[in-house]
Design a protein around this nucleic acid. Structure first.
Lengths: 197, 197, 197, 197
DNA sequence: GATGAATGAGCTTTCATTCAT
DNA sequence: TATGAATGAAAGCTCATTCAT
């Protein structure tokens, strides 16, 4: 029961954050969005900080879970890459979630240790999954550059998300997915050949 | 003379922004950082908004200029790519500037039209330069995917910057530069071949 | 309930205004006078302007109503004039209300359109009532000068109020009422005769 | 020399006051209007209060002098009354001066003792002059009501000025002057007869 | 004398938090 | 539990006044 209320509050909080950012999020806006009074918020949470923390935690968990889904498939190389392309497009189109992730990153960079640690975990696990994926679909000997490659592949997704947020529809997402696809199909193998020769 | 004071204020503002973010930047903090009283700030600027705008404008100009420097070189492919690698490393190490860029991006995403437009201009010009570069060093027929490729190459830089900010020294910058290098040397050509056959 | 608080704030505001004028009225003074914190004022009103507006509106309504009461009587000439004399004296003695009216007039003259309009309405209605009264008690043909006469009779009240405020007890209110009385009994009829012959 | 600068400052001050009121008058506005720097004001005056005082003093002196001019004439009744009518019209049309007078009255009522005393002096002298005038042109025995009558005649002028300021061109000044004229020609004699019988 | 940058108190307003109901 | 009025610190900003030049 109490959990239901809490969920309502953090959902409201995330909607508010996506609209006005973390700094612009006030208790009154959260209360209004959740259909509660400001006082009621304090029955479920001790402070604004706790609410924000829970809301951010939830957002990060969702995005971490999404990142981990990459590995799920057990297809061959072409199928796997095709699947990645689809996931990618979905990711680029979740504007609201991307905005929130972006605000959270900000919060972390500003010195919120808790959130920073969560981001660290998320990237570490994500990079690990991508490393595995690389090894699985390219079947090459792992080298010391595999982690860096994974990091770069992930970074390019984040970077494109940033461009989509900043430039809106002047970014052609389909073309970018196609390039990403070709990169995985042709570019990466050429790269890997270089190191493993 | 008055410009000197303005510059002092702007520099102080950028230091404050890099420390506490744009939302956390108050007139009092700027005044303290600049060694002035709050009232004095209003001699040189009509409002906080103007100060922030000038400070952001300056940061963005610097980063836009940096982005444009990419094209300067008149080397052959290997030399050009080597140069890019060096620039990249420099870029990754400018932590403070990267933080500010990140805060500015947030400001833009939150609805600051002026800043958003500047980011749009910056990316457009940057992508243009990278497109030219691609054509110059690979000497292939341009295809409809060239812009997307440029966008992706730039995005991957932003994404890595984000990881550096979020994960600190768990990202091995040298390795990433090496991978980026190999990508340009081996990966991209393999990609371009695909489209121009 | 909430209206009760608003009334308390408005009353406090009017006390403050009567003490220090509109320009000297600060939120802190209002809050202190009402026994509240400054923040609490913003629960009931969105801004200082709204508080001042409500306070001024209330003062003006009261004075407008007072002005309109003149017509009520259904007496003969002597009784009506006697009644006017009594009303006059009461009006002169409401020092605080007169002060506030005076401050409001200044506010209007300084360019507060809303208040200016209300004053316009008040005078228009007041002059109309006096015109009717003149016609009723003197039973002469109305001439083009009736409106001007009404305006002058009203103006002389305002002017005396001003003198009372500025000169205090050096103005003998009883004598002035007596003169006003005689003016209505003997002076005005002689005037009207002049125009209707 | 120094007096010339002081004059420039108080003229500038009066222009500013007439535009934005006493409370809205700032040192910077005075300095700008006078074509000086704020610092320069302090070479001639020790404080804002002194400047305002001098400016107000000057305005009040001018208006007191104007009030005293009434007596100058040495005409018969009709000529004197005609002259009064002309003066009246001039007075009503000096909008800027009337505004300033009004603001000064405010200042006095708010507790500025110095200004209050000056107003007291002005009215006392003005009333005295009008009393003399009444006696001269009507040649009746003076009664205890003469002072009150003078006060009322002066008050009605102030009251009309107030209406002109508040209602602008909806007051027909010519009509009012005509009524005032008739009041002096026919109304006042009828009044005086009453008391001296 | 003259300048205008600098000061700092005090203004209106916002907002996390508390608490009587 | 729930409400929303109340608190008070801190924000952006204004302005009389001072003072180095």
């Amino acid at each position: 029961m109490i959990e239901k209320k809490k969920l309502r509050i953090i959902n409201a909080t995330n909607r508010v954050i996506s609209r006005v950012g973390i700094a612009g999020t006030t208790m009154r806006k959260i209360a209004d969005e959740a259909g509660l009074s400001t006082g009621a918020l304090y029955h479920h949470y001790k402070s604004k900080e706790e609410i924000l923390y829970d809301a951010m935690d939830r957002s990060l968990s969702v995005s971490t879970r999404m990142a981990q889904e990459t590995k799920q498939g057990k297809y061959n190389r072409e199928e796997a890459i095709e699947q990645i392309g689809k996931d990618l497009k979905k990711r680029f189109n979740k504007i609201d979630e991307n905005r929130i992730q972006f605000y959270l990153a900000q919060e972390a960079i500003l010195g919120n240790e808790e959130i920073l640690r969560k981001f660290g975990d998320k990237y570490q696990s994500w990079i690990g999954h991508v490393e595995e994926l690389l090894q699985r679909i390219y079947e090459k000997q792992p080298t010391r550059y595999n982690k860096a490659l994974a990091s770069l592949l992930i970074g390019s997704i984040d970077g494109i998300v940033m461009q989509v947020l900043l430039r809106g529809n002047t970014v052609d997402i389909d073309d970018i997915c196609e390039v990403y696809n070709q990169l995985l199909l042709e570019g990466i193998p050429a790269l890997l050949d270089q190191w493993t020769e």
